[in-house]
Simulated scan of single mutants.
Amino acid sequence: MDTLTSLTRDLVSIPSHDDEAAAGEYITAWLRDHTDARVTRDDHGNVIARKGQGDDSLAFVGHHDVVPPDGSQVGADGEYVVEERDGRLYGRGTADMKGCVAAAMLAFRDADPAGELVFASFVGEEQGGVGCQAAIEDGFAPDYAVVGEGSTGYSAPGTTDVAVAHKGRRGSTIVANGAAAHASEPEAGANAIYRVTDAVDVVRDLDFPSTTVLGHEMRGSVAVTEIDGGSAWNVIPERCAATVDERTVPGERAPLDRVEAIDGVTWRVDQDLPPMACGDADFADAVLDAATTAQDGTPEHVVKPHATDAGWLAQAGTDCVIVGAAEPGEAHTADESVSLAVVERCQDVYERVAASWPSR
């Protein structure tokens, strides 16, 4: 029988930054071999398994794609290097998030749910959640979800908390069009850089969006992060663009369209990853109870600063929380690693949630 460590090692060793197919095939085969669940792998590459029946459905949600590895994380055979030392597993995807995918697989296998229990591992999370979005479009709609992204180390070092909300990200571009002229006669043209800087002043004066989720204050942010314009030192620029990074909160957006009141300025949204807010306090409390029982520390409801697939699920009507082993700063690094003890803790939390929800 697979142990959590061996299953995690197997998953982490499979390259899945350019092509998630092999990892998806492995997860699909494992679920079919080790459970009697109804297992599908859809046309997008998402793996979804279902067991049990009831009015309520609870999903364990993860993703098996990863960001491109550092050169040191790839072996001569092309597989990812996986190393275990000092109680930690090192390798691309250990923290984000194949460790918790493995924990969810084992918890799903061992559960005897009172309602419908779902396991889902999506592709394309690192590309803006394209796999999750595709699954939702195809009808994926659990009532509740525990998403295995990192929630450890927020309230206290080593404590696995329960995230009840996270920020989203809206990336947008301000474009100013003017008229070119020789720089010796600036009045003969219309300076696009000046128009963009006028728009930047508008952005600078905007209030950051804020809200409250289950008693926790969330405050977003808006920042201009890039400016690109001009063609030569002696030419009045006819075009200039500025990139805006906005961290969004549920129900609120900064009124960035105000920049279009400036002559020659337009604004477009390039990416809009939705925030997440759990709307069911009883569910959030039940998961917190499970997390409290599973560890010596005292976990809390917390807010994550960045977007996950939970945002897409919440936008579609699923009440989500996030419980995962990764701590801030562990993912996407050349020495990415995860504590095996914390991954085991997450498996324990998932098993307890499956056993207690919905009420029997």
Rank of each mutant, 00 (worst) to 15 (best):
A232F: 09
P255H: 03
V235R: 06
A241E: 15
G215T: 09
E252Y: 01
W233M: 05
T248W: 11
R268D: 11
G230V: 13
D205P: 04
A277N: 08
I236A: 00
E238C: 03
G215P: 10
D282R: 13
I262A: 03
D263A: 13
L214V: 10
L288Y: 04
A294R: 09
R239V: 10
T211M: 10
E217T: 11
D285T: 14
D270N: 15
H216P: 00
M218W: 09
A286P: 01
A284N: 10
D263W: 02
S210E: 15
E238I: 00
T197V: 15
A261W: 06
L206G: 00
N234I: 08
T243W: 14
R268T: 14
A281R: 15
V235Q: 03
D207Y: 01
R239Y: 02
G251Y: 06
S210T: 15
T243S: 14
M218A: 08
D289V: 14
A284S: 10
E217Q: 11
Q295N: 07
R219H: 04
V202D: 04
D228R: 14
D198I: 03
G230W: 09
R239A: 13
V249H: 07
A290V: 06
D280S: 06
E217K: 13
D285Y: 08
G215E: 07
V259K: 03
R268Q: 06
A291E: 06
L288M: 04
L214W: 06
L256G: 02
R258N: 03
R268K: 01
F208S: 12
D272I: 11
E226L: 13
A291P: 05
A284W: 12
A291M: 07
D207I: 01
G215W: 07
V222T: 15
A281M: 02
D245V: 08
R268H: 03
L214R: 08
D270V: 12
T292A: 11
A290Q: 11
L273K: 02
P255A: 02
G279W: 04
L206F: 01
A294E: 11
A286Q: 10
A232V: 07
A290C: 12
V259L: 04
D245F: 08
A286N: 10
W267V: 02
D257G: 15
V249R: 05
T266K: 00
D245E: 09
L214Q: 15
D272T: 09
H216V: 05
G215K: 06
V213S: 01
A286F: 01
A286M: 10
G230D: 09
Q295V: 11
M218E: 13
V196Y: 02
N234Y: 08
H216N: 13
